[in-house]
Design a protein around this nucleic acid. Structure first.
Length: 276
DNA sequence: AGGTAAACCTGGACGC
DNA sequence: TGCGTCCAGGTTTACC
């Protein structure tokens, strides 16, 4: 489900209800996620205050008053909602509930269970030390992600450009939808070897990634099937999609039908006339 | 080392 | 109605 804009939308939705709040109870109904939810997670969290919440790539990090950090990822189908406390019946696939002193509750729902909930103990900055975070590439909306950087990652690489920009060690947050969209916007074939993309195209690609992610955040993310924000509302970026999930429909630029191919087991949508 | 396929899991859509 | 097949927004892992 979630790529960077959906995770950012989720974070913005839960942040106001979490920051400064104390955790009063933790219920784990299903600990079998991507990795097992630590069995002591409840005793570690209860009584702690959420100092701040932030995003790194597609991970959400809650910094706790004791110095530890709660690290979660929504995987393919995960979502986080804020419940008001009185309407808190457990739906199928609701796995974790974090009750707050305010009476609100943070509820984690994830049918496919590819997400994770992990606890990083106090000490170093998790972005620098945690094994899942420390090798991540730059944030695409930060100044660290620029043409020189991406160009250096592409040089000599035979891997398809689409796979390269979806590699979180190169740049975080670009998933299947936004990789397709950014390549369309920059006129690059998703199949082109990364090392054979021109410098001018790379400049367009950096801008396209920024543009598409930024616009999607502004529109509350993309709801294809089931993405909902923390208030249970859909995102509006689907109507802006130029190629993703539009196989056979006319390209918005040249009218020729959008094509679908498979690259490393993922669907790729593109216009073979507009993208070279 | 770099590149590719499979693995994790549930559910919805579709064809017969 | 039911059953088999394919597909899905991510990432790691195992294997060439």
């Amino acid at each position: 489900m979630p790529e960077l804009p959906e995770v950012e939308t989720t974070l913005r939705g839960i942040q106001p209800w979490l920051d400064g709040e104390t955790i009063s109870d933790v219920v784990v109904r299903q600990r079998s996620l991507r990795w097992p939810v630590p069995s002591q997670i409840g005793s570690k969290l209860v009584g702690q205050t959420v100092v701040s919440s932030r995003r790194r790539g597609k991970y959400i990090l809650l910094e706790l008053s004791g110095g530890g950090t709660l690290l979660t990822h929504l995987g393919m189908s995960g979502s986080l909602r804020i419940l008001s406390g009185d309407s808190d019946e457990w739906r199928k696939h609701d796995h974790i509930g974090i009750s707050l002193a305010s009476g609100k509750e943070l509820r984690y729902h994830d049918p496919r269970r590819f997400g994770c909930w992990l606890y990083c103990k106090a000490g170093e900055h998790p972005e620098d030390s945690h094994e899942l975070l420390h090798k991540l590439g730059p944030e695409p909306l930060s100044d660290d992600f620029d043409v020189d950087y991406l160009w250096s990652c592409m040089k000599g690489r035979k891997v398809a450009i689409k796979q390269l920009i979806m590699n979180s060690h190169v740049v975080v947050g670009v998933g299947n939808i936004y990789a397709c969209e950014a390549l369309y916007l920059s006129g690059i074939s998703p199949r082109r070897a990364a090392g054979r993309v021109t410098r001018a195209s790379t400049e367009r690609l950096v801008e396209a990634i920024r543009q598409v992610l930024g616009e999607a955040i502004e529109m509350g993310g993309t709801t294809l099937r089931d993405f909902l924000n923390a208030d249970g509302e859909a995102g509006y970026f689907k109507q802006e999609l130029r190629v993703y999930d539009r196989e056979g429909e006319p390209c918005r630029g040249c009218e020729s039908p959008v094509k679908r191919i498979v690259q490393s087991n993922r669907s790729t949508f593109f216009c073979s006339d507009c993208q070279k």
